[in-house]
Design a protein around this nucleic acid. Structure first.
Lengths: 184, 184
DNA sequence: CAGATCATGTAACCTGTTACATGATTTC
DNA sequence: GAAATCATGTAACAGGTTACATGATCTG
């Protein structure tokens, strides 16, 4: 996956500006993918060069002009190719596990604090998911009106919650085991 | 976390060369963190500049000379500071979910194939974990002899397996729901 | 004789982050 | 009067990937 593919997904519905895309990223896929404004503008330029999108300028009086990006037939083909392509190799990067791996150097209390702090982060994240995402999904549904899309969005939220719950259970198990951690 | 912290973790036990470190990354933390050779050499240079490590050259007749990196007191302090620091903010990036998010554009069959292919990747990964990692942990234990460390390594493996199992269950649920996916 | 292992590194490139720059309008 | 919103971008940097470069020795 590349940022370009996510952008193709968004512009496949309607033409959007870089500014619009930034909002889409923040509000609808922000819980599993982020993009900065400078990254979006940079990528749109390259996508236009590659013929995945075309750009039209919309003059506005009060506000800065908008540059709308429209998907091309080539872009649509690339989007479908990517959606049905082989799964990408699993790239697994867990900075958190690096700490756990070297945590034998810490005292029992420090190790417990490490896991507790991680659990607190995860619970805060779960809170954000539960509070912020369901209304965002409903709002997007109101605008787009696709039940099929809504079901897919719900899958991504289920995934996030499932991950958080599973990790919280793992931490509980680990904390229970810390009681009889070998001393060396 | 930075690559430098992982390197500090490794050289805190015994001095190592860039080449040694590459093997450590591949064999012991490879299931949750990777580093390329060029990244390791680049980072070692910066760590020496920053005073986290010092370097000594070991002449060898048959083979290229080795450059051994030793942790300094400053490096040890930095390692402990990092291990006990506040948890880093959760950065959540799931390229796989981006596909799911836009998958409403696909047919029911294509969506099912998407999930099935993902499940196959996850099962292959589980296979690798179960076959390759436990012996690697035992081998590392034989060399280092720390039961405390072995317990921590086991935690990281448990985490990986837990994640795979949880995602596989999520895919099963999703596949079951695909039967009555709205058409639009 | 081909390929792996030992051991060092550099160069070019891609992705992502942070900060800076501009300037009008709307809202508190 | 300050801050948010609308809307565009650039510049510099950090982290990660791929490919290239060298050269001996060991293994099949």
């Amino acid at each position: 996956m590349s940022l370009g593919h996510a952008i193709l997904g968004f512009v496949s519905g309607r033409p959007l500006s870089g500014y619009d895309l930034k909002k889409r990223f923040d509000h609808s896929v922000g819980h599993f993918w982020t993009a900065t404004q400078s990254q979006i503008y940079r990528t749109l330029k390259r996508m236009a060069d590659d013929g995945w999108v075309t750009m039209t300028v919309v003059d506005q009086d009060d506000r800065p002009d908008r540059k709308l990006y429209h998907i091309t037939d080539d872009g649509r083909r690339e989007l479908h190719r990517w959606l049905t392509a082989e799964p990408e190799p699993l790239v697994i990067r867990h900075p958190w596990l690096v700490r756990v791996f070297f945590a034998d150097q810490l005292s029992d209390e420090e190790i417990a604090a490490l896991f507790e702090a991680r659990a607190a982060s995860l619970r805060a994240q779960r809170e954000r998911y539960e509070v912020a995402i369901p209304p965002a999904i409903e709002e997007a549904f109101r605008q787009i009106g696709s039940n099929r899309a809504r079901r897919m969005w719900q899958f991504t939220l289920d995934y996030g919650l499932m991950r958080l719950e599973a990790e919280l259970r793992w931490i509980e198990d680990a904390l229970a085991e810390l009681a009889d951690l070998p001393e060396d």
